[in-house]
Amino acid sequence: MNELIYNIAIWLDNTTYSTLLHESYYMYNWVESTHVLTLMVSLGILFLIDLRMLGWAFPDVPASKIADRLNIPMLVGFTVMFITGILLFYAVPVRSAQSVWFRIKMVLLVACAVNAYLFHKRMNESVSSWDSDAKAPKRIRQGAMLSLGFWSIIVICGRFIAYDWYDCQYDQSAFIDFVAGCVDGQTRF
Protein backbone atom coordinates (compact mmCIF):
# COMPACT_ATOMS: atom_id res chain seq x y z
CA MET A 1 0.00 0.00 0.00
CA ASN A 2 2.75 2.45 1.00
CA GLU A 3 4.66 1.56 -2.15
CA LEU A 4 1.57 2.31 -4.24
CA ILE A 5 1.10 5.69 -2.53
CA TYR A 6 4.79 6.44 -3.10
CA ASN A 7 4.56 5.50 -6.79
CA ILE A 8 1.46 7.67 -7.29
CA ALA A 9 3.24 10.55 -5.54
CA ILE A 10 6.28 10.07 -7.81
CA TRP A 11 3.99 10.10 -10.85
CA LEU A 12 2.37 13.36 -9.67
CA ASP A 13 5.78 14.81 -8.90
CA ASN A 14 6.89 14.09 -12.47
CA THR A 15 4.06 16.12 -13.99
CA THR A 16 4.97 19.55 -15.35
CA TYR A 17 2.33 21.48 -13.42
CA SER A 18 3.46 20.03 -10.09
CA THR A 19 6.97 21.32 -10.75
CA LEU A 20 5.68 24.67 -12.02
CA LEU A 21 3.50 25.15 -8.94
CA HIS A 22 6.29 24.15 -6.58
CA GLU A 23 8.88 26.31 -8.27
CA SER A 24 6.65 29.37 -8.60
CA TYR A 25 7.38 31.47 -5.51
CA TYR A 26 4.36 33.73 -5.91
CA MET A 27 1.83 31.13 -7.07
CA TYR A 28 2.74 28.67 -4.33
CA ASN A 29 2.56 31.39 -1.68
CA TRP A 30 -0.77 32.64 -3.04
CA VAL A 31 -2.24 29.14 -2.84
CA GLU A 32 -0.84 28.58 0.64
CA SER A 33 -2.06 31.98 1.86
CA THR A 34 -5.54 31.34 0.49
CA HIS A 35 -5.54 27.95 2.23
CA VAL A 36 -4.65 29.55 5.57
CA LEU A 37 -6.76 32.70 5.29
CA THR A 38 -9.87 30.73 4.32
CA LEU A 39 -9.73 29.52 7.94
CA MET A 40 -11.61 32.71 8.76
CA VAL A 41 -14.55 31.65 6.61
CA SER A 42 -14.61 27.89 7.05
CA LEU A 43 -13.25 27.09 10.49
CA GLY A 44 -14.29 30.40 12.01
CA ILE A 45 -17.93 29.88 11.09
CA LEU A 46 -17.83 26.17 11.98
CA PHE A 47 -16.48 27.02 15.43
CA LEU A 48 -19.24 29.61 15.92
CA ILE A 49 -21.85 26.91 15.13
CA ASP A 50 -20.15 24.50 17.55
CA LEU A 51 -19.91 27.20 20.24
CA ARG A 52 -23.62 27.93 19.77
CA MET A 53 -24.45 24.28 20.46
CA LEU A 54 -22.33 24.42 23.62
CA GLY A 55 -24.17 27.57 24.74
CA TRP A 56 -21.02 29.73 24.58
CA ALA A 57 -22.01 31.89 21.61
CA PHE A 58 -25.32 33.33 20.37
CA PRO A 59 -27.28 31.56 23.16
CA ASP A 60 -30.46 33.52 22.37
CA VAL A 61 -30.42 32.81 18.63
CA PRO A 62 -32.26 29.60 17.61
CA ALA A 63 -29.70 26.85 16.97
CA SER A 64 -31.35 25.80 13.70
CA LYS A 65 -31.03 29.34 12.31
CA ILE A 66 -27.33 29.54 13.15
CA ALA A 67 -26.66 26.09 11.66
CA ASP A 68 -28.80 26.57 8.51
CA ARG A 69 -27.94 30.15 7.61
CA LEU A 70 -24.20 29.81 8.21
CA ASN A 71 -23.96 26.47 6.44
CA ILE A 72 -23.54 27.89 2.93
CA PRO A 73 -20.76 30.45 3.67
CA MET A 74 -19.02 27.76 5.71
CA LEU A 75 -19.22 25.24 2.85
CA VAL A 76 -17.95 27.84 0.38
CA GLY A 77 -14.96 28.36 2.72
CA PHE A 78 -14.33 24.62 3.02
CA THR A 79 -14.55 24.19 -0.76
CA VAL A 80 -11.86 26.81 -1.31
CA MET A 81 -9.83 25.22 1.46
CA PHE A 82 -10.05 21.73 -0.06
CA ILE A 83 -9.17 22.96 -3.56
CA THR A 84 -6.13 24.88 -2.30
CA GLY A 85 -5.23 21.93 -0.05
CA ILE A 86 -5.24 19.57 -3.05
CA LEU A 87 -3.07 22.05 -4.97
CA LEU A 88 -0.60 22.22 -2.05
CA PHE A 89 -0.42 18.42 -2.01
CA TYR A 90 0.03 18.38 -5.78
CA ALA A 91 2.92 20.85 -5.53
CA VAL A 92 4.86 18.67 -3.05
CA PRO A 93 3.37 15.18 -3.45
CA VAL A 94 6.14 12.85 -2.27
CA ARG A 95 7.01 14.64 0.95
CA SER A 96 3.33 15.31 1.77
CA ALA A 97 2.28 11.70 1.14
CA GLN A 98 5.03 10.52 3.50
CA SER A 99 4.40 13.09 6.22
CA VAL A 100 3.16 11.60 9.49
CA TRP A 101 1.27 14.81 10.19
CA PHE A 102 -0.36 14.88 6.78
CA ARG A 103 -1.55 11.30 7.30
CA ILE A 104 -2.96 12.08 10.76
CA LYS A 105 -4.64 15.14 9.24
CA MET A 106 -6.30 13.02 6.53
CA VAL A 107 -7.58 10.48 9.09
CA LEU A 108 -8.97 13.31 11.21
CA LEU A 109 -10.65 14.90 8.17
CA VAL A 110 -12.52 11.63 7.60
CA ALA A 111 -13.42 11.55 11.32
CA CYS A 112 -14.68 15.15 11.02
CA ALA A 113 -16.82 14.25 8.00
CA VAL A 114 -18.41 11.33 9.88
CA ASN A 115 -18.92 13.50 12.96
CA ALA A 116 -20.51 16.28 10.85
CA TYR A 117 -22.89 13.75 9.24
CA LEU A 118 -23.96 12.34 12.62
CA PHE A 119 -24.20 15.84 14.09
CA HIS A 120 -26.59 17.02 11.35
CA LYS A 121 -28.60 13.79 11.48
CA ARG A 122 -29.09 14.03 15.26
CA MET A 123 -29.81 17.73 15.02
CA ASN A 124 -32.45 17.38 12.30
CA GLU A 125 -34.16 14.62 14.27
CA SER A 126 -34.51 16.58 17.48
CA VAL A 127 -33.95 20.31 16.92
CA SER A 128 -37.62 21.28 17.14
CA SER A 129 -37.69 20.28 20.82
CA TRP A 130 -34.67 22.37 21.93
CA ASP A 131 -34.14 24.96 19.17
CA SER A 132 -34.39 27.99 21.47
CA ASP A 133 -32.53 26.47 24.42
CA ALA A 134 -29.21 28.11 25.22
CA LYS A 135 -27.50 24.71 25.23
CA ALA A 136 -28.10 21.80 22.87
CA PRO A 137 -28.78 18.29 24.28
CA LYS A 138 -25.80 16.28 25.50
CA ARG A 139 -25.30 14.19 22.31
CA ILE A 140 -25.24 17.30 20.13
CA ARG A 141 -22.83 18.99 22.55
CA GLN A 142 -20.55 15.96 22.37
CA GLY A 143 -20.55 16.25 18.58
CA ALA A 144 -19.69 19.96 18.84
CA MET A 145 -16.85 19.23 21.29
CA LEU A 146 -15.49 16.51 18.99
CA SER A 147 -15.65 18.92 16.05
CA LEU A 148 -13.76 21.62 17.98
CA GLY A 149 -11.15 19.09 19.15
CA PHE A 150 -10.64 17.37 15.79
CA TRP A 151 -10.35 20.62 13.85
CA SER A 152 -7.93 22.11 16.38
CA ILE A 153 -5.70 19.04 16.00
CA ILE A 154 -6.03 19.29 12.20
CA VAL A 155 -4.72 22.87 12.36
CA ILE A 156 -1.83 21.73 14.59
CA CYS A 157 -1.02 18.88 12.17
CA GLY A 158 -1.18 21.36 9.29
CA ARG A 159 1.45 23.49 11.02
CA PHE A 160 3.61 20.46 11.87
CA ILE A 161 3.76 19.37 8.19
CA ALA A 162 6.26 22.20 7.66
CA TYR A 163 8.72 20.55 10.08
CA ASP A 164 11.00 17.70 8.94
CA TRP A 165 11.28 15.82 12.28
CA TYR A 166 9.91 12.54 10.88
CA ASP A 167 10.83 12.83 7.22
CA CYS A 168 11.86 9.64 5.43
CA GLN A 169 15.32 10.88 4.48
CA TYR A 170 16.37 10.66 8.15
CA ASP A 171 16.88 7.49 10.19
CA GLN A 172 13.60 6.84 11.98
CA SER A 173 12.27 4.11 14.23
CA ALA A 174 10.46 1.21 12.53
CA PHE A 175 7.16 2.59 13.87
CA ILE A 176 7.66 6.02 12.30
CA ASP A 177 8.87 4.41 9.06
CA PHE A 178 5.63 2.43 9.00
CA VAL A 179 3.32 5.35 9.87
CA ALA A 180 5.05 7.70 7.43
CA GLY A 181 5.01 5.02 4.74
CA CYS A 182 8.74 5.20 3.99
CA VAL A 183 9.71 2.79 1.22
CA ASP A 184 12.95 0.77 1.29
CA GLY A 185 15.46 2.16 -1.17
CA GLN A 186 13.39 5.17 -2.13
CA THR A 187 15.39 7.78 -3.98
CA ARG A 188 13.05 10.74 -3.92
CA PHE A 189 11.82 12.56 -0.83
Binding site: L39, M40, V41, S42, I45, F47
Partner: peptide, 8 residues
Protein backbone atom coordinates in the same frame (compact mmCIF):
# COMPACT_ATOMS: atom_id res chain seq x y z
CA UNK B 1 -7.61 29.00 15.47
CA UNK B 2 -8.02 32.35 17.27
CA UNK B 3 -7.71 34.11 13.92
CA UNK B 4 -10.31 31.78 12.43
CA UNK B 5 -12.82 32.45 15.22
CA UNK B 6 -12.15 36.20 15.10
CA UNK B 7 -12.63 36.14 11.33
CA UNK B 8 -15.83 34.14 11.74
Amino acid sequence: VGLGVLGG
